[in-house]
Amino acid sequence: MSSQVIENTAIDNINAAGLKAVLNIFKKWECSNEQIQKILSVSRAALHNYKHNPEKAKLTADQLERISYILNIHATLRTVFSNPENQYGFMKMPNNNPYFNGKTPLALIATGKFGILYEVFKRIDTMRGGAW
């Protein structure tokens, strides 16, 4: 087996692990399939396939970046909150801080717009430093 094949297999395994983790996070956030489709920028058929065979998913660079932001949002929430109700419930809580304007973080990222996902991540990430 060539080193390129081994490297690609390792990358595919990492991608599948990230996808599985994100799908589990979405389940705990109580996301609908439609929300997941928009957040990850995938079709209904692709989402169905990803859920049943994440190791066979062929993810684009954009989708991998979206997965990365979701994993980082989750990591931040786990750092900031010690209780699972806030770790997993925060994304569904109306937020009156600037930018959110009473909307939930999940509602914003479920628009599917990459820039909004980035902004929500950036604002949640500031919670690590106590900026809220």
Rank of each mutant, 00 (worst) to 15 (best):
Glu34Asn: 02
Asn24Pro: 00
Leu106Thr: 07
Lys122Cys: 03
Leu19Thr: 05
Ser41Tyr: 12
Leu117Thr: 07
Asn97Ser: 10
Val5Tyr: 05
Asn53Leu: 02
Ser43Gly: 15
Val5Asn: 06
Asp12Cys: 13
Val42Met: 01
Gln63Asp: 01
Ser43His: 03
Phe26Pro: 01
Glu7Leu: 15
Asn101Ala: 10
Met91Trp: 06
Glu65Met: 08
Lys58Ile: 15
Ala10Met: 15
Asn15Tyr: 07
Gly102Asn: 05
Asn83Gln: 15
Ile39Thr: 00
Thr104Arg: 10
Arg44Cys: 00
Asn15Asp: 14
Leu59Gly: 09
Leu64Met: 14
Leu77Val: 07
Met91Phe: 06
Asn83Asp: 13
Ile116Met: 05
Glu119Gly: 06
Ile70Tyr: 01
Ile6Thr: 14
Lys92Asn: 11
Asn13Gly: 09
Arg66Glu: 04
Glu34His: 02
Tyr88Phe: 15
Lys113Arg: 12
Ala21Asn: 10
Leu77Ile: 01
Asp12Ser: 15
Ile39Cys: 00
Gly115Gln: 12
Met91Thr: 03
Lys20Val: 13
Asn49Pro: 01
Leu40His: 02
Arg128Leu: 15
Thr126Arg: 11
Leu117Lys: 04
Pro105Asn: 03
Glu65Gln: 13
Tyr69Phe: 15
Gly89Asn: 08
Val120Asp: 04
Ala57Val: 11
Arg78Met: 12
Ile124Pro: 04
Ile116Thr: 15
Phe90Asn: 02
Leu23Arg: 02
Asn96Phe: 10
Ala21Cys: 03
Lys38Gly: 02
Ser41Lys: 11
Met91Pro: 04
His48Ser: 11
His52Ile: 04
Phe114Ile: 06
Phe114Gln: 06
Phe121Ala: 10
Asn24Glu: 05
Glu119Gln: 15
Ser68Trp: 09
Pro94Cys: 05
Ala10Asn: 14
Thr104Lys: 08
Ile109Gln: 05
Gly130Ala: 12
Ala10Ser: 14
Leu117Asn: 03
Leu23Asp: 01
Leu47Asp: 03
Asp62Thr: 11
Asp125Gly: 13
Ile109Lys: 04
Met1Asn: 07
Phe114Tyr: 11
Ala61Gln: 15
Asn33Cys: 00
Asn49Phe: 03
Asn15Met: 02
Glu55Thr: 08
Glu65Thr: 13
Gln37Cys: 11
Leu77Thr: 08
Ala107Gly: 08
Leu117Val: 08
Ile11Gln: 11
Lys51Ala: 01
Glu85Val: 12
Ala16Ser: 14
Asp12Met: 09
Tyr99Trp: 11
Thr9Gln: 12
Ser2Ile: 08
Ser82Gln: 11
Asn101Ser: 09
Phe114Met: 11
Tyr99Val: 11
Ile67Ser: 02
Asn86Gly: 05
Thr9His: 11
